[in-house]
C-alpha cells in the first residue's frame, strides 16, 4: 500500500494534484481571512486592560505560530530528504524557508508594535520576543547557506543538516532564554489569559493564516519544480549542442 507521501514522490503527479488543490486552499484562506478580520474588528470587544491594541494580537499570534510551524515543516522535509531521499522534500524545504522567514519577521514587527503601547518601548528583551528573534537568525542562516553553495544537490543536503541541527538546539535555546529572562526580570505574561470572546476570532485568524501559508507554499513548490525543469532542459540543450559541435568537428577532421 502506498502512503500519500509515496504517491506524491512523482513530481508530475504532485503538479497535477497541487493544481487541483491550490484554488480550493486559496479560496478557503481568503474566506476565513475576511471573516476573521470581521470578527477581529467588529465582533470582538476591546480588552479591559489593553484597550483596542489587543486587536494586533489577531495577526501577531498567527504569525508567531507560523514562524514555529514552518520551521517544523522545514525540519520534517529535511528529515524526509536525508533519510527517505524523497524527491520533493528539498523542494518543500527550499520553498518554505523564505516564507517562514517572512512570517517570523512579521511576528517580530507586530510584536514590537504591540509592545510600544504596552511596555512603552518598541523592543523589550522579553523571553518570547528573544526566542523568535533567534529563530529568525536560524532562518537567515538556512537561506544564506543555501545561496552560498552552487551545487544544488549538495546545497539541499547541507541545508537539511543545518535545519535538523537547528531543530535539535531550538528547545535548548528556548529553555535557556526562558531561564535568562526569569533571572533578569519578572516575566510579563499577559497573553496567557485570553478572554473567550477573543478566542474565536483568534482561532479563525490562525486557521486562515495557516491555510494562506499552505497555499503560498504549494505555489512556491510548483514554481521550484518548474525552475528545476527549465534548468535541466537548458543543460540538456547545451550538452546536445556540444555533442553536435563535436560531431561536426570530428567530421571536418576526417575529411
Amino acid at each position: 500500500m502506498q502512503t500519500l507521501t509515496q504517491r506524491l514522490a512523482n513530481p508530475a503527479r504532485f503538479m497535477e494534484l497541487s493544481a487541483r488543490l491550490l484554488p480550493w486552499i486559496s479560496g478557503a484562506a481568503g474566506i476565513l481571512l475576511v471573516s476573521g478580520l470581521y470578527l477581529a474588528f467588529f465582533a470582538s470587544p476591546a480588552d479591559y486592560q489593553q484597550g483596542e491594541t489587543v486587536r494586533i494580537m489577531y495577526i501577531h499570534v498567527p504569525c508567531a505560530w507560523l514562524s514555529m510551524m514552518v520551521y517544523g515543516l522545514i525540519a520534517l522535509s529535511s528529515f524526509g530528504l536525508l533519510v527517505f531521499r524523497h524527491p520533493l522534500a528539498d523542494v518543500s524545504a527550499k520553498a518554505a524557508a523564505p516564507l517562514g522567514a517572512a512570517f517570523t519577521f512579521l511576528a517580530l514587527l507586530t510584536g514590537s508594535l504591540w509592545g510600544k503601547p504596552m511596555w512603552g518601548t518598541y523592543w523589550v528583551w522579553d523571553a518570547r520576543l528573544t526566542s523568535v528573534l533567534i529563530l529568525f537568525f536560524l532562518y537567515l542562516g538556512l537561506m544564506a547557506l543555501r545561496s552560498a553553495l552552487e551545487d544544488e544537490s549538495a546545497a539541499a543536503k547541507l541545508t537539511a543538516i543545518l535545519a535538523l541541527v537547528g531543530v535539535t538546539i531550538l528547545p535548548i535555546i528556548k529553555f535557556s532564554v526562558d531561564w535568562w529572562n526569569t533571572l533578569h526580570q519578572p516575566s510579563t505574561d499577559f497573553t496567557s489569559t485570553v478572554d473567550p470572546s477573543m478566542r474565536l476570532p483568534l482561532l479563525v485568524m490562525a486557521v486562515a493564516f495557516t491555510l494562506l501559508f499552505f497555499a503560498m507554499h504549494l505555489k512556491a513548490m510548483r514554481n521550484e519544480i518548474l525552475r528545476r525543469r527549465v534548468k535541466a532542459l537548458r543543460t540538456q540543450a547545451v550538452a546536445g549542442r556540444d555533442r553536435l559541435a563535436a560531431q561536426a568537428a570530428n567530421h571536418g577532421a576526417a575529411e
Binding site: 486587536r55 517572512a102 512579521l106 514587527l109 508594535l113 510600544k116 514554481n223
Partner: peptide, 28 residues
C-alpha cells in the same frame, strides 16, 4: 471605527502584514 489612542500602531501592524503577504503572493 474608533480604535482609541493607539490606532496608529494597529493600522501600521495590519498594513505591514498586508503589504508583506501581498508582495509575497505577487512575487510567487
Amino acid at each position: 471605527m474608533d480604535l482609541g489612542p493607539h490606532a496608529a500602531f494597529i493600522w501600521i501592524s495590519y498594513a505591514a502584514v498586508t503589504v508583506t503577504i501581498t508582495g509575497l503572493i505577487l512575487w510567487l
